Amino acid sequence: MSDEILKLEDQLCFSLYATTREMTKRYRPLLEDLQITYPQYLALLVLWEKDAISVKELGHRLYLDSGTLTPMLKRMEEHDWIKRERSDQDERKVIVTLTEKGRAAHEKAACIPTKLLENVDVDPEEFEQLKRTLMKMLNSLHEQNTKGL
């Protein structure tokens, strides 16, 4: 077997990992004004699309388990971004809703995607194709990983 297969720069996982780290670094100053972390931003993105969502559905959308999601939501609630309440229909369900502060942040965050991609040397068509490919890969990997559980 060739040693080429084990070269770092030939590993897709490394490209994804390093790109994610660099992308997250670019988000940091943009999210400072809102005083939120990148994972909190992702949760807000989901809630701006659909407010009043169950913790389970939010976790599903973010590919996060409740052990990771619950502490983050607790911090967001402490900072008045969201409110968590038990469902009237099913007390086992916890519903997450935006507060006024959380809804108001939507307008402030509207510029983030555009600012993030400024000076990134990828044309819009490549960017859209990359997103489609990565989502296809994410869904496939997630399906395989959940089958193994």
Rank of each mutant, 00 (worst) to 15 (best):
R61L: 11
L58A: 14
K93I: 12
R84Q: 15
E107R: 12
S66P: 01
V120R: 00
T99E: 01
S66T: 10
V122I: 10
K56E: 14
E107D: 04
G59R: 11
K101C: 01
G67F: 10
T68F: 09
D121R: 08
L116R: 00
E57I: 13
E91V: 11
D88H: 12
R84A: 10
T97D: 14
E91N: 08
R75H: 10
T68V: 07
R61M: 14
K83N: 09
L58E: 04
L73M: 05
T97K: 15
W81G: 10
D88W: 09
L58I: 04
R103W: 13
W81Y: 14
S66W: 05
K56N: 13
T97R: 15
A105V: 03
R84F: 12
G102D: 00
G67Y: 14
V122P: 02
V120W: 01
K83I: 13
L98E: 03
Y63S: 15
S66F: 02
I112P: 03
E77V: 09
P113G: 06
G67Q: 14
N119Y: 14
M76A: 09
I95G: 09
P71G: 14
P71V: 13
E100N: 07
Q89H: 12
V122C: 04
E107Y: 05
H60P: 00
V55R: 04
I112L: 02
A105N: 04
I82H: 01
I112M: 04
R84G: 08
D90K: 07
I82Q: 03
E57Y: 11
K108W: 04
T68Y: 09
E118D: 08
T114V: 03
T97C: 11
A110Y: 06
E78L: 09
E91F: 14
A105K: 03
C111W: 08
E57M: 12
R103N: 06
D88F: 13
D65E: 15
K74W: 12
Y63G: 12
K115D: 06
K108D: 10
I82A: 00
R75A: 14
N119L: 12
K93T: 07
L69H: 04
C111H: 06
E78Y: 03
E107G: 00
L58S: 08
R84K: 15
T114R: 07
E77Y: 08
P71W: 05
D65Q: 15
K56C: 13
T99P: 00
T99F: 02
R61N: 12
M72L: 15
A110D: 12
L98T: 02
M76E: 05
L116N: 01
A110P: 07
L64S: 11
E78M: 10
T70N: 08
V55W: 00
G102F: 00
D80A: 10
S87L: 01
S66L: 11
T114L: 11
